[in-house]
Design a protein around this nucleic acid. Structure first.
Length: 904
RNA sequence: GGACGCUUAGCUCAGCUGGUUCAGAGCGCCGCCCUUACAAGGCGGAGGUCGUAGGUUCGAUCCCUACAGCGUCCACCA
């Protein structure tokens, strides 16, 4: 066995173990009828992305669950993969082309797409490579990409089925148009934010009269496309104008004045211009009133040929200025006021969205939403924390049709084919399209130019990755998956849509039992959705590139180790709360790793000392030579095991880390290891010592297993040193389950007395400035029924932990004259230190303690003095309070007595 | 406009079903110690009327109501 270094060196251990785990195939999952599956699909990161702390948190949590379940004997399967990220990826490649002085149009579609694939092959797995550094136990043999052959087949299949069902339709609608990307966006891809705009008040003359009306608009340039004016039908101010014609300034077009109760009479002047081609509400209004739709802005955001010549070709914002000038010059502009208001912007490039009238493809969502709502309401799919349920339900209740076409080249091309006569159909292949349309092979057939929204492949992820539409063994076994771990920001984009898709497309597919799936529990994509925290910097700001406040996780791993990062971030992330992160917080994880490392080092050194090279069987702990500390640590271990199990079951992952930290550092290292030293270095028989070493190693082994899901590398490394089992790995070793018989309240109480006495002695030392190296003597007075025997039988604990060289039991009458004292569980402690203690300090110490006890006693007496309390509170609570009262009273008396005994 | 979250020690936060010495942890701070696993460590200590005001209850950091401050999401009036 190699010597272990004094401090833990994570980089070396991590680089050694990850490839080893992969080569041994420890993360690979197979269909296994002997085992229950446990499945997670990764939220596929964009191929353009680089790893950030959000990924770290998200993937660490997934890894904790997967490793935990794997150790529990589940066939744990974590399917990794990446998303082609239509807009983002196309962006990146287009930027590269721009640098080369060319663009995608010069290249042509086919070459451009080839170029993107080349880019993807080089850079597309950056995140996936980086994730390995984190130690994630993904089944890499199952890695998928949303544009893989299989997934593309699934996309086409879904589109065609929805089309044939009438759930996909084509329509001319106002969509959110990004003039930079020149594509439509779904409603969810638009981010609304406040902006300082202006409100222009413009006079529109009424034809044939001297009358005119004033309307207010933030977008005067769209007036070129106005086709009506509109007021509320009940508005007396304008009623007389109903049916009249107004003249559109600058253009001279006649437009009707109409009435509609959409109008809010209290806003502005109460009459509004209507531009059906450039505003969603106006569009709907226009439909109701059969208004003409005049588009005046092109796909690049410039004024088109339908506007007066001197505006044509102007950028929409440039045109706005010109229109304002011209209106003013011609006397139509009444006033302009500052007007802060909300506008939508492209979530990727921040360009102001242009409501744009165009032909797009939509999915009718209402029929899909209905069952997806039900499974959540019925608790078949559960959110953690639960409050996201309401957010989900609200969205489902108000769902709108999903615009799925994107005017891009990178993505799944829409499988719709047009015949020369304009008829069209959706089909899995060109041949199928010809059959469906009745077109001969020699006739030209045109496929739709647009591609599908990226989420259109992502929403199929939990089954497309498993072979759907094929009826595969994997699909039967691993779907429904179990836990989805993702951020609340994509609950609509992704989570909700996956629920809809899984229900819709898995219906009737054979399930685990081979029978067609019908029940909701077999149709959902996953059972539990864990919503992760949002990572912020230490000032609470979102991590962002522009702020430069986003540390590179790879640097953090290099500096502190992957285990340290994993542990720290899960420790900091309570379920459902944001996390304020800064790199230096990882010191906590690093220090913890080092602590464990040294505990392991200590045990191994002593094992060698006591047992030589002999291998110890750690399959069970030795039941020989048990003393209080042993029974106590077994009790604590099993309690911790229970608590961890409960915390993980409730998705309270940071609780689990806190339990592990507390158990390993405070129970195991601070107390147990210190106590065990008394036996390693004591005069017990070699057999007894061997039993003690064996048990200590066994407990440590159990603790390592509990910790492994959180800190996989260091636990594997230490575990290997512990066991010498070259062929095995902690990755697939049983996760401990608690043995109730070891959880023993009485043992813990006895141990508590020992601990309290040691703490009291340490306090005396600290406050009296007694050197740690100085031995002390302890005299105790034990009341009737007190636990003095327990204390005396573990005198060696006091020797080691408090440097007590002599323990004597004395009579009340034999109290030492000059001594520091304390009262613990009714036992009086005296440390005779004539001439050495600082009387003033000791008096202060006792007075402080007296005050503390007095305060608590007062609290209890106030409670007990309240007749309502004694009458109404449960008996055991009252009884407990009485017991406490008595104990405090006794303590207080003794303390006062001892204070008095100190003299002046 | 609607929904939701947060407010506890100097800082960052736990505290889940009201009563356990319930007021905690980590960091920071003060004092002592390089005690043969660990100074990335050990021991001791200081520090909080649990945002404010009410209410429910024998009892409230915890449940309810209102308010204040911070934050998030959804919708949106030209």
């Amino acid at each position: 066995m190699p010597e272990l270094s004094k401090t833990y060196n994570p980089a070396e251990v991590e680089d050694r173990w990850y490839p080893e785990w992969e080569t041994r195939g420890l993360f690979h999952a197979k269909v296994n009828s002997e085992k229950k599956p446990y499945t997670i699909v990764i939220p596929p990161p964009n191929i353009t992305g680089i790893l950030h702390l959000g990924h770290i948190l998200n993937n660490t949590i997934q890894d904790v669950f997967v490793r935990w379940k794997r150790m529990q004997g589940f066939e744990a399967c974590w399917i990794p993969g990446t998303d082609h990220a239509g807009i983002a990826t196309q962006n990146v490649v287009e930027k590269a082309l721009a640098k080369e002085g060319t663009d995608r149009h010069k290249l042509g579609r086919e070459k451009f797409v080839k170029r993107v694939w080349e880019w993807k092959d080089i850079y597309g797995d950056t995140i996936i490579r980086q994730l390995r550094k984190l130690g994630v136990s993904c089944d890499w043999q199952r890695e998928r990409f949303t544009m893989d052959e299989g997934l593309s087949t699934a996309v086409r299949e879904v589109f065609v089925r929805l089309f044939d069902k009438g759930l996909v339709y084509r329509g001319k609608y106002i969509v959110n148009w990004c003039t930079f990307h020149r594509t439509a966006l779904s409603d969810d891809e638009v981010e609304h934010g406040q902006t300082n705009g202006k409100l222009y008040h413009i006079r529109y003359p009424i034809e044939g009269t001297k009358d005119s009306v004033v309307i207010a608009t933030t977008r005067p340039e769209t007036m070129l496309g106005d086709t009506a004016l509109c007021f509320h039908p009940k508005d007396e101010r304008y009623r007389h104008l109903n049916g009249k014609q107004a003249t559109l300034p600058l253009v001279g077009r006649r437009i009707p004045v109409i009435a509609d109760d959409y109008i809010d009479s209290s806003f502005g002047t109460g009459i509004m211009k209507v531009t059906p081609a450039h505003d969603t509400n106006d569009f709907l209004l226009g439909q109701r009133h059969n208004l003409q739709q005049i588009s005046v802005i092109n796909e690049a955001g410039q004024m088109n040929e339908l506007v007066p010549k001197h505006y044509e070709g102007l950028d929409r914002f440039e045109c706005r200025k010109r229109i304002a000038q011209d209106l003013e010059a011609q006397g139509f502009l009444v006033k302009v006021e500052e007007y802060p208001h909300n506008i939508g912007r492209c979530y990727r490039c921040n360009t102001i969205i242009e409501p744009y009238l165009s032909d797009q493809w939509f999915v009718r969502m209402k029929p899909l939403a209905k069952p997806a709502l039900k499974v959540v309401q019925d608790g078949v799919v559960r959110f953690h924390p639960d409050r996201w349920t309401k957010v989900y339900e609200h969205w489902m209740d108000n769902i709108r049709d999903w615009c799925i076409s994107r005017q891009l080249w990178w993505g799944h091309r829409i499988p719709v084919y047009y015949a020369p006569d304009g008829t069209y159909t959706a089909a899995r292949s060109e041949e199928e399209a010809r059959t469906k349309l009745g077109i001969a092979p020699e006739m030209p057939l045109r496929q739709d130019d647009d591609v599908l929204d990226t989420w259109f492949s992502a929403w199929l992820w939990p089954f497309s990755t498993l072979g759907w539409p094929g009826d595969t063994k994997d699909l039967r076994y691993f779907n429904p998956t179990d836990t989805l771990v993702t951020g609340p920001d994509i609950i609509f984009f992704w989570v909700a849509r996956m629920v809809m898709a899984n229900i819709e497309f898995m219906k009737g597919m054979p399930g685990r039992d081979g029978k067609p799936r019908q029940k909701d529990k077999d149709l959902v994509p996953f059972r539990d959705v864990y919503m992760t925290s949002i990572i912020r910097d230490d000032q609470g700001r979102k991590m962002s590139k522009s702020l430069g406040n986003s540390p590179d996780p790879i640097d953090v791993i290099r500096e502190y180790g992957a285990d340290a990062l994993r542990f720290t971030i899960t420790y900091l992330a309570p379920l459902g709360q944001d996390v304020l992160f800064s790199t230096d917080k990882c010191e906590m994880g690093r220090n913890f790793a080092n602590k464990i490392w040294n505990a392991g080092r200590f045990l191994l050194l002593n094992k060698k000392e006591i047992c030589g090279e002999e291998a110890l069987d750690l399959s069970a702990h030795s039941a020989e030579h048990l003393d209080l500390a042993d029974r106590w640590i077994l009790s604590r271990l099993n309690t911790a095991t229970d608590d961890i199990h409960n915390a993980l079951t409730k998705f309270q992952i940071n609780d689990a880390t806190k339990i592990l930290y507390g158990f390993l550092w405070h129970d195991f290292c601070d107390w147990y290891v210190e106590l065990v030293k008394t036996r390693f270095y004591g005069d017990e028989s070699p057999e007894a010592k061997k039993a003690v070493v064996q048990r200590a190693l066994w407990v440590f082994d159990q603790a390592l297993r509990l910790l492994h899901p959180f800190m996989p590398f260091i636990t594997e490394e230490l575990w290997q040193h512990l066991t010498d089992r070259k062929d095995a790995s902690i990755v697939r070793i049983n996760f401990p389950s608690s043995e109730k018989r070891h959880i023993d309240r009485k043992t813990e109480q006895d141990m508590e007395i020992v601990q309290n006495v040691i703490n009291a002695l340490r306090n005396i030392r600290g406050e009296n400035n007694i050197q740690p190296s100085r031995d002390i003597e302890l005299q105790i007075i034990v009341p009737k029924g007190g636990k003095g025997d327990t204390l005396q039988s573990y005198e060696r604990y006091l020797q080691k932990l408090a440097r007590v060289t002599k323990l004597t039991r004395i009579k009340n009458s034999a109290k030492p004259k000059v001594a520091a004292s304390a009262v613990v569980n009714g036992i009086e402690l005296f440390v005779p230190l004539e001439g050495l203690i600082d009387m003033g300090a000791e008096r202060n110490r006792l007075e402080k303690e007296i005050q503390r006890i007095q305060q608590m006693l007062e609290g209890i007496e106030k409670k007990l003095g309240n007749p309502q309390f004694t009458a109404r509170a449960p008996k055991d609570v009252v009884e407990k309070e009485r017991e406490k009262q008595n104990a405090f009273k006794v303590n207080l008396e003794k303390l006062k007595e001892n204070l008095g005994g100190l003299g002046k």
